[in-house]
Write a protein that binds this DNA or RNA. Structure first.
Lengths: 173, 173
DNA sequence: CTGACTGCAAACCCTTTGCAGACCG
DNA sequence: CGGTCTGCAAAGGGTTTGCAGTCAG
């Protein structure tokens, strides 16, 4: 949740249209999976999408969620943030925007800022390849993490007695 | 490779000093692991560091590489880019800098640009948490990927006959 | 109807952990 | 010497794939 109704409807309409043009079938599962990502501001990972969709379609399988999310990305309907392997997180916001990312728990939030949308590309960078887009990533510690002893999110190496034990990464709220 | 000698020496010296202050032992393995990351501009993932170190210490184990890299991060000697779970990639460049990232193969390159170092933090973002730093991420397709049929780097869903099959992510060159 | 799609189960990888022996300081 | 650190092996988790049955168009 978090995306207003009008925007969500626009995203759904775009999905239907794109799917039709691409000759991709509009199944119940796909619709619900897309709806979940498109209505969220959480940049959910696969697991979170799966649980949410499962609440509505109890028989949906995890691999369908994987396949569908990558298909949506192929169609250009969502983008990923973060890695290309490992835990990917999805973003249905196609407008130019930027991210706040918590370096402890991984929480991610969009924000828009016109001034950041038009940063030039330094000449030295052009040699690396063809630029697709530019995003500003503001890294910090989110409120929940700075408040709580919410624990760490990555392995503590050579953990000493007093240290907090690793807990399964809470569901990116 | 890629970091000039003077800078590498400075990084190694800093490592020794920080380790001593923290009461962490300076083992052969740790030195070589740090040297590998500190001398590279590749933002290597664990696997790449492991292979490089293994060439010099044939008995080194993969888990030691994992433990050491996270320890180095705990000490503030390197940072990670990308995810907090999954495939992390490491960065021994502690100066303010920004990244060019290939959206196809994941290649990452640093670049410096003073104008990007001092972007303000929009008021709306401050509510999300305490900002640690800000980086500009320029996303694009690197030369190797735009040149070659270097294949895709993530699963192709509903792959059609003609499509390229997924290949193991080549070693970030 | 028919090919695209789904669910299942197994395979794959990458990462982490427990433990006994090795080694730094 | 003692506690830290390493290597080994196994466990743990997330992701991907092959296949047979199902369903959208």
């Amino acid at each position: 949740m978090g995306v207003d109704r009008g925007e969500l409807d626009r995203r759904l309409e775009r999905f239907r249209e794109t799917a039709r043009k691409a000759g991709v079938r509009l199944t119940h599962q796909r619709l619900e999976i897309f709806r979940e990502v498109a209505s969220s501001i959480e940049h959910p990972a696969v697991e979170a999408v799966f649980r949410a969709v499962q609440a509505r379609i109890s028989t949906v399988s995890l691999d369908t969620v994987y396949r569908t999310l990558w298909m949506l990305e192929d169609l250009g309907l969502i983008t990923t943030l973060g890695p290309r392997r490992g835990v990917a997180r999805f973003d249905a916001n196609l407008r130019p925007h930027h991210h706040f990312v918590c370096i402890r728990c991984g929480l991610a939030r969009d924000f828009e800022n016109p001034a950041f949308d038009s940063l030039g590309v330094p000449g030295a960078v052009k040699q690396y390849g063809d630029v697709v887009n530019t995003r500003v990533e503001i890294r910090g510690v989110c409120r929940a993490c700075s408040r709580g002893a919410t624990g760490r999110t990555r392995p503590s190496v050579n953990r000493k007695p007093g240290q907090v034990r690793r807990t399964k990464l809470a569901d990116q709220k």
